[in-house]
Simulated scan of single mutants.
Amino acid sequence: MSRLHVVSGKGGTGKTTVAAALALALATEGQRTLLVEVEGRQGIAQVFETEALPYEERKIAVAPDSAGASRSDSSRGGGGRRAGEVYALAIDAERALLDYLQMFYKLGGAGRALKKLGAIDFATTIAPGLRDVLLTGKACEAVRRKDKHGRFVYDAVVMDAPPTGRITRFLNVNDEVAGLAKIGPIHNQAQAVMRVLKSPETAVHLVTLLEEMPVQETVDGVAELRAAGLPVGGVVINMVRPPVLDPDEVDLAANGARAGIATALSSAGLGGARRGGRAERLIDPLLEQAREHAERVALERAEHTEITGLGLPTYELEQLPEGVDLAGLYRLARDLRTQGPI
């Protein structure tokens, strides 16, 4: 089982929502999960309907146990299973650099002085690669951190990562840094990060929709991750639409079924099927909608086949009719749990 779950996906596929649902799904049976944000969008706060996250690890949710009870439920009536907890952290590159300077160079006071002078902001702005080094390093530090008893502080860490188009470079930046800095603490830190990112402890999950562009980016992303030696986890198909017609009805819609529709409308009391009648006037709009639906179903089938052809575990999350609120987030987490380990 992986301990660092990196969630990426094309913009608009709902990767932040999936990352949040995954964190809840992993935080069961007393497990503690850290949900990490690296893009500075405060997307986690929005999903959990809470205030903006500071640069500190803060508990934002209590996960239900495997029986579906929250902590308040499972603590009643004596001896229920303990629910898990989800903590969240919005990583700030400047603050992470200050941590880095203190950790490796004991420059706490000097680092704060550099921040006042604007040097920290200057460094992270002119060197985008440095920003990625700091972000990945902070996440991996949380994965490796242990308490005074030698136990991991977090059972799992979930990272809401950059989009698919740059996820490989984002995760692989420490390889480049280790090659540039041949010795010293920077080299050692970069190698330590890559040991985590390229180990079985890590899994990179890609979120997609059953649409051509997101699926193509997912296929390309998987190829790039594999070529870089980064561990690919699974593919989460998000916002899956519930079936409206069964397969036979879809085929009829694709081929047109004018006479059948006219008869059905007449049977429903919507007027006779005579030319110019009420039922007749409804046929063409209904056929057009049916054709559009059939085309959509055919496209989704083809894209689904493309995804399963990757040979990766696949998970499906339904499109919530009312949008994603906190209750919907817990529902998605439950759906992930029921589909097996991720």
Rank of each mutant, 00 (worst) to 15 (best):
A268P: 04
G30I: 01
L98D: 08
Q191S: 10
G118V: 08
A259Q: 10
T17M: 00
T305M: 13
M103P: 03
Q42I: 00
E217I: 09
S2H: 07
R166D: 04
V219P: 11
L329Y: 05
R226I: 13
L22E: 01
L252E: 11
E56G: 00
K182Y: 03
G43E: 04
V222Y: 06
D248L: 13
A52M: 08
T208H: 04
E49K: 08
L26W: 04
Y105V: 11
L24M: 03
A119V: 13
A27W: 02
I283K: 01
R301V: 14
L26I: 01
E176D: 13
A63V: 03
M103K: 14
T208N: 02
D175A: 15
P341W: 02
A161F: 02
D147P: 02
R32G: 02
R3W: 06
G79E: 13
E49H: 00
G9C: 04
Q216D: 13
A302V: 12
L98E: 08
R144M: 13
G78Y: 03
M213C: 00
A67P: 05
R131E: 14
L225K: 10
A25P: 00
L117C: 05
V297K: 05
T338E: 12
F170R: 00
G233Y: 02
V232D: 11
A161G: 08
E176M: 11
A123S: 14
A113H: 11
E211G: 05
L310Q: 15
Q42R: 08
N174A: 12
Q216A: 14
V240S: 10
T263C: 06
L22R: 06
G277A: 02
S266K: 13
P214I: 05
L180F: 15
A257G: 07
A257Y: 10
R95D: 11
G77W: 10
T208R: 02
K59Y: 01
A156I: 00
A23D: 05
A264N: 06
V240I: 12
A228W: 14
N188F: 10
T124Y: 04
R258L: 07
K10R: 11
